[in-house]
Design a protein around this nucleic acid. Structure first.
Lengths: 179, 179
DNA sequence: TACTGCATGTAATGAGTTACATGATTAC
DNA sequence: GTAATCATGTAACTCATTACATGCAGTA
């Protein structure tokens, strides 16, 4: 009997399981809301992502759905199964941390590698615009609040990361103004 | 006459154009090498990504290819066109910075939002493992060198970001050990 | 000779995006 | 009544991934 190959959860799948763990049984729409409302997420929370994803998770036995007529229409409530919780935990703290600890992508940092393809003027103005935009971003982030303690930590980590980014770009902008 | 809709460059496409700008006419393989060798990139540099991508860019007139027999085999040298340089510059410093300035995704930070789904022991050991892995990552990064000045900046920014991440996780691990 | 690395690709797959369709509920 | 929003989906598409196929070139 061949061991069934367990594909690792994608980031999105992990987050969805996490949401179900946190909020309990949820509709697809409330899962979408999580992404739509999140200030820092890079997922669109599109229906085209979420609905098929939940079906996939159900096929894998990680979530279970209960039919629920809501407003004269068929709907589903998805909940985390025991197996789903296990998978969530292994996704969260995998044996090999390399991937989740690796330098995360950052489109702004990426662009620094090609800065000199811009004429000096544009280079400077780009960095100055970036500084302003980052400052605005940091303020917005700093103002946001959550109840959940874990999410507060994650949010604080995001603020910390954004400030570090801002620092670096400010430094770079300064050195460019001078040099 | 309807204006042709110019799809924005993806991050990968931007990087490839940047590479061509930096190194001049290049083979697909050397483009792949850029990604395969880069310490911080999250792209695999897979052939299945790079070859079709270059074809796409050529169809859009952003790169041009010259046939070159190399070792008794057909090969291509791709070079940046004038239009390609323009697109590179607009990709690099777009009018709207929101997307490139937004909080970038970070799988480690993401997981902080669901930490409490782990039993306290695992939670602590996860964070400690993460601290060790991050420290190792920072050392490796700090040791790496590039000649290109822009890439040095990007690289230094990556180090800065990684140290900020490490700081935060260390702080969190400490507070968890105590509390 | 055989093995390894360089180099050029193709095919199948997968996960997420945009755009669309549709109906119920709520606000004006 | 009409417009916006809530809510549930589906379809077509894009882009990148893994895995594979192939063939040359240098080396043990």
């Amino acid at each position: 009997m061949r061991a069934r190959r367990r594909r690792p959860l994608s980031e999105l799948e992990g987050c969805v399981l996490g949401h179900l763990w946190k909020r309990g049984p949820s509709t697809p729409y409330s899962v979408r809301r999580m992404f739509l409302d999140s200030p820092s997420s890079h997922w669109s929370g599109s229906a085209g992502a979420v609905y098929p994803l939940l079906e996939r998770l159900e096929q894998r036995g990680l979530v279970a759905s209960a039919l629920a007529r809501r407003g004269g229409r068929n709907a589903r409530n998805y909940s985390l199964t025991r197996a789903g919780l296990g998978r969530l935990q292994r996704w969260l703290a995998p044996a090999a941390l390399d991937e989740i600890v690796a330098v995360p992508p950052d489109p702004l940092r990426t662009r620094l590698g090609f800065l000199r393809s811009l004429p000096p003027r544009e280079r400077r103005s780009f960095l100055e615009r970036a500084v302003r935009a980052l400052r605005a971003g940091v303020e917005v982030l700093a103002a946001a609040r959550t109840r959940d303690e874990d999410e507060q930590q994650a949010h604080a980590a995001a603020c910390h990361a954004m400030r570090a980014r801002l620092e670096w770009i400010e430094r770079l902008a300064r050195s460019l103004r001078r040099g």
